[in-house]
């Protein structure tokens, strides 16, 4: 851990709602530094997904207060594609099916968009394929996945593997994983977790948003935060997740109240 580094992501009193709806996030504070793995846990309706969507830049959400700095920049000044090119990648809870767009095409466009952004030359097809094949192997995915339409007809597990495959190819600085463990059987959970662990490095950070502790026995977090009713009510180390597993969310929520 490199505590002395400045924060990669700095969330300060963030408040947000679905456009014209009732408030969902009611003042979130969070700092994530390079090399760290954070887990944000919380019951259904606590605001986990809203937090991910707001950080990803999805339309339909309204930030009503607070700030988010990403690598020293105001995150809300950046379009969703700019966030991605700057290294903030969101793994979707429900990866979107896109008929007619081949996986390989999406990967290549995304990869080259990032390179262009950094002023690097676009990868040629041969180099790129070599890179992708290596990552496919890590995710135990068959090469035929490349030529299938993005997520179309994929099982729940295949979709999540595909999300992590994109991460491995795009190598984000900050990976934000929204319930990546949901809908996975034990074997798929293992493959997906191994993929996420391959992303771990001293200059990269990972935020896992999850409902269940089981993901955290595969990906060990440095910090665990409990989100409830739009606020982080408790933070701790990995033992907090184990405590949650024993006493449930209710216990922690009551204790914090």
């Amino acid at each position: 851990m490199t505590q002395e580094n400045t924060a990669m992501l700095k969330i300060n009193n963030l408040q947000a709602r679905v456009e014209n709806g009732t408030p969902i996030l009611k003042g979130i504070d969070l700092e994530v530094r390079p090399g760290e793995v954070h887990a944000i846990m919380g019951p259904n309706g606590s605001g986990k997904s809203t937090l991910c969507q707001v950080l990803g830049g999805r339309d339909g959400y309204e930030v009503t207060g607070g700030t988010v700095e990403y690598q020293g920049k105001d995150l809300f000044e950046l379009e969703p594609e700019e966030r991605a090119r700057e290294g903030l990648l969101l793994g979707f809870q429900y990866p979107v099916e896109i008929p007619g767009v081949k996986n390989i095409y999406l990967l290549k466009e995304a990869y080259n968009a990032q390179r262009k952004h950094r002023g690097e030359p676009e990868a040629d097809t041969f180099q790129f394929l070599k890179l992708v094949r290596e990552k496919l192997q890590m995710m135990q995915m068959d090469e035929s996945f490349l030529h299938r339409a993005v997520n179309v007809g994929f099982s729940g597990g295949e979709k999540k593997r595909n999300e992590i495959l994109q991460m491995l190819v795009l190598e984000p600085k900050l990976a934000l994983l929204d319930e990546t463990d949901s809908g996975l059987d034990i074997d798929a959970l293992k493959v997906v977790s191994e993929g996420v662990n391959k992303l771990r490095s001293p200059d990269r950070a990972i935020v896992l948003v999850t409902h269940y502790q089981r993901l955290l026995s595969h990906i060990e977090p440095d910090f665990v935060h409990v989100l409830s009713a739009g606020r982080i009510i408790k933070s701790g180390d990995k033992t907090l997740a184990q405590e949650l597993e024993r006493s449930g969310y209710q216990g922690i929520i009551e204790e914090a109240a």
């Binding site: 990803g56 830049g57 999805r58 339309d59 379009e79 969703p80 594609e81 966030r83 991605a84 090119r85 990648l89 969101l90 979707f92 990866p95 979107v96 896109i98 008929p99 007619g100 767009v101 095409y105 999406l106 466009e109 995304a110 968009a113 990032q114 952004h117 339409a149 994109q166 795009l170």
Partner: peptide, 28 residues
């Protein structure tokens, strides 16, 4: 809109993302 957002969240600019989706629609 969801598909557009998904493509943009991978770093593809809005205009190219739109083009990809329209083209994909026809290409089917």
């Amino acid at each position: 809109e969801t598909s557009l957002y998904y493509l943009r969240s991978r770093g593809i600019d809005a205009e190219s993302a739109r083009g990809m989706l329209v083209f994909a629609f026809a290409d089917e």
